[in-house]
Design a protein around this nucleic acid. Structure first.
Length: 298
DNA sequence: CAGCGTACCTGTAAGC
DNA sequence: TGCTTACAGGTACGCT
């Protein structure tokens, strides 16, 4: 469930079903799922066994569960998760059948619902990492060390609009590429980048150094608005790959204005939406509302 | 250093 | 029907 609204939907589910519970055991069924935990699968499982989930946090597309380790101190490490292209975190009866692409399974000391990381394409991963001070947020906030370089996302308090606009306009790249850069703004992926640009009436190939302050703010507002709407709909899913912790799909796909609408009329002006190849994927734009710049950056 | 292309996977759908 | 190809929500890494 890749982009911010889908990950936030999962975060809310985990908060409800997993927070404040103590892990009994972690079972790694596919080593690739913990490849970024450099100390290995055994160390990963060892750090989780007996730990209590203190909370469920998110920045952009990353989720993390700060862990109480039993000594009464504040959490110093966290279980960090990225769902990649096809990852799911599912909560359910421990005895149910194992999913075909089950990669990691956590059981809890209370014997209740288990937590499963299911990931068809294995681009997602889990790891346990140290918590370090957050360079972007309040002084007492922490983030897992591997994601300290990730920028705040536009729906968190730590996001600084003016700073984003300054950094965006200093870049020398295309607008869409910049929106997808998680070190500039996190949480935006291919769907919501296209939707934000449609709302802002801007083309993703616009060179960032030609953007006015007002245009930059429009792009940001577009991202913020579309993600808030998608979140209210439980996220976007085209198939069973993108579901919440209870296996249910969101329905924001019905509200998409650009993404996946090649050849269909723009709901603002009626012109057929056009598809272009971009970064080994697709970009969808309205050729009238979002005129392609003369000096295009893709 | 910033920016860009490619690699990493599995599954589905479309094309021949 | 079966084979091949294109494409799918993302990030890390190495090259220029």
């Amino acid at each position: 469930m890749p982009e911010l609204p889908e990950v936030e939907t999962v975060r809310r589910g985990l908060e409800r079903w997993v927070a404040r519970r103590t892990v009994a055991a972690a079972e790694v069924l596919h080593p690739r799922a913990v490849r970024r935990h450099t100390a290995g699968a055994g160390d990963f499982a060892g750090r989780l066994a007996g730990a209590e989930v203190a909370a469920v946090r998110r920045r952009g597309k990353y989720l993390w569960l700060p862990l109480f380790t039993g000594d009464g101190a504040a959490p110093s490490e966290a279980l960090l998760a990225h769902l990649g292209m096809s990852g799911q975190l599912l909560v359910g009866e421990p005895g149910r059948e194992r999913e075909k692409h089950l990669r990691v399974r956590l059981t809890f000391a209370d014997g209740g619902l288990d937590l499963r990381f299911v990931d068809q394409r294995t681009f997602g991963h889990l790891l346990v990492a140290d918590l370090v001070p957050d360079a972007h947020g309040a002084p007492d906030e922490t983030v897992p060390e591997p994601i300290r370089h990730i920028a705040p996302d536009p729906i968190e308090d730590a996001f600084d609009d003016a700073e984003f606009v300054r950094r965006l306009r200093r870049r020398r790249t295309g607008l869409k590429r910049a929106l997808l850069d998680q070190s500039l703004i996190s949480g935006v992926g291919n769907i919501y980048a296209d939707e934000a640009l449609w709302r802002a009436k801007l083309h993703g190939a616009r060179p960032t150094e030609t953007l006015t302050r007002a245009e930059s703010e429009r792009a940001l507002a577009g991202a913020r608005e579309v993600m808030a709407l998608a979140l209210a709909a439980g996220g976007t899913s085209f198939d069973r790959l993108y579901v919440n912790v209870n296996g249910e799909s969101g329905y924001f796909d019905r509200s998409l204005e650009a993404y996946g609408r090649e050849g269909q009329p723009c709901r603002r002006c009626g012109a057929p939406i056009r598809r272009d190849a971009f970064m080994n994927r697709s970009s969808f734009t309205c050729p009238v509302c979002q005129p392609r710049p003369r000096r295009a950056r893709f």
